[in-house]
């Protein structure tokens, strides 16, 4: 069974009066516990696809099936309830939270909204979530702006997994982090995937990161799929022009070689 099946998705915008296709006839599937990466240059439609899949914006054409049901058919309260299974982690963990929020409130919201725990039980759940992502439960009382960038992204992940989703969209979720922190966050994501069988839609412009964590990759160019396949195979031997350009542009360290 696939977690997410997107077919013939299309989204048009108007730029300077002229229509342009941000996403054009895009189809892909994600299996449980699988990481599918979306790669491509800026303006290739990666983030638009993420927002379409999350129903933050509505497509002009196409179909989105989530956990075997037509996801575009639900709306209102039914859609809000469905959202528990489909979560997101943003690029900038500071912009992704209400600037006035505390860690506890950020994690309390999904539990309260989806009725996952009573008011009395929630502090215990929040502590467990923080431990799950490798943070000290005492952090709950802190304001979001007081903790470090890496801690914030762990809180974002804790919030995303609070409702036990089957799919998490990671929109450049490690791009803004320091390299040392990035490695730890990627390890955490892989660990969660293995234990809870979460599928990831992993959006990144960095092929090195994609190669490290993704099973399959879809390379986009100007809203269309240029090529797709096994992540390592595609990156080792790209066929499309944009795939070749992306690989060639990735900085590499030639270590221990003359």
């Amino acid at each position: 069974m696939t977690v997410l099946a997107v077919s013939n998705l299309a989204k048009r915008y108007h730029r300077g009066g002229k229509p342009f296709a941000a996403v054009d006839d895009v189809s892909f599937k994600i299996n449980p516990a699988e990481t599918l990466a979306l790669a491509g240059p800026s303006g290739s439609g990666k983030s638009t696809i993420a927002r379409l899949v999350l129903r933050l914006i509505e497509p002009d054409a196409g179909r989105i099936d989530f956990e075997g049901a037509d996801f575009l058919a639900v709306s209102g309260a039914a859609l809000r309830a469905r959202r528990a299974r489909l979560q997101m982690v943003f690029q900038d963990p500071l912009a992704a939270f209400n600037p006035r929020a505390t860690v506890a409130r950020v994690l309390d919201d999904p539990l309260r909204i989806h009725g996952l725990a009573s008011r009395a039980e929630r502090p215990r759940h929040i502590a467990a979530l923080l431990e799950r992502v490798g943070l000290d439960p005492a952090l709950a009382a802190r304001a979001i702006h007081e903790i470090s960038g890496g801690q914030r992204q762990r809180v974002a992940i804790a919030r995303a997994i609070a409702t036990r989703p089957s799919l998490v969209v990671l929109d450049e979720a490690v791009s803004a982090l320091d390299v040392s922190v990035r490695g730890q966050i990627l390890e955490l994501l892989l660990d969660l995937q293995r234990q809870e069988r979460i599928a990831y839609l992993f959006i990144s412009h960095d092929l090195g990161v994609i190669r490290a964590v993704a099973h399959r990759v879809v390379i986009l160019d100007a809203g269309r799929i240029a090529e797709s396949g096994d992540a390592r195979a595609v990156i080792a031997n790209p066929q499309s022009a944009i795939g070749k350009a992306l690989v060639a542009a990735t900085p590499r360290l030639t270590r221990d070689r003359p």
């Binding site: 990035r182 490695g183 892989l190 960095d206 090195g208 964590v213 690989v247 990735t250």
Partner: peptide, 8 residues
């Protein structure tokens, strides 16, 4: 994480 690193 380069293109020749061992994937995580």
């Amino acid at each position: 994480l380069g293109l020749d690193a061992e994937p995580l």
